[in-house]
Amino acid sequence: MDVVASEFATVSVSVDDHGNGTRLRLEDLRTGTVRFLDALELESIVWAPESWMRALLDPSQHRWRDADRGPAQESMPEPPEEPPA
């Protein structure tokens, strides 16, 4: 396990192989919250536009989201639904 830390955040980073394939395990060591990222998700992050990362860094988008706007996690804006056929 490695730790990527700054004065702003502390996250442990490890490659997890308990599943049928490898994935990255990220743990926010200040809260214990864990997220796994598979290879395709990681590749997508590598290719994500800068605006996407800037939006992700807005605290109101997830962890410190107002209660009436949904749960903190999994609360990034959903893609628009397909119109009914």
Binding site: L57, D58, P59, S60, W64, D66, D68, R69
Partner: peptide, 11 residues
């Protein structure tokens, strides 16, 4: 220096 965001932005 750009402001990226702040918690609980409904405020």
């Amino acid at each position: 220096g750009d402001l990226l965001g702040f918690p609980f932005n409904q405020g």
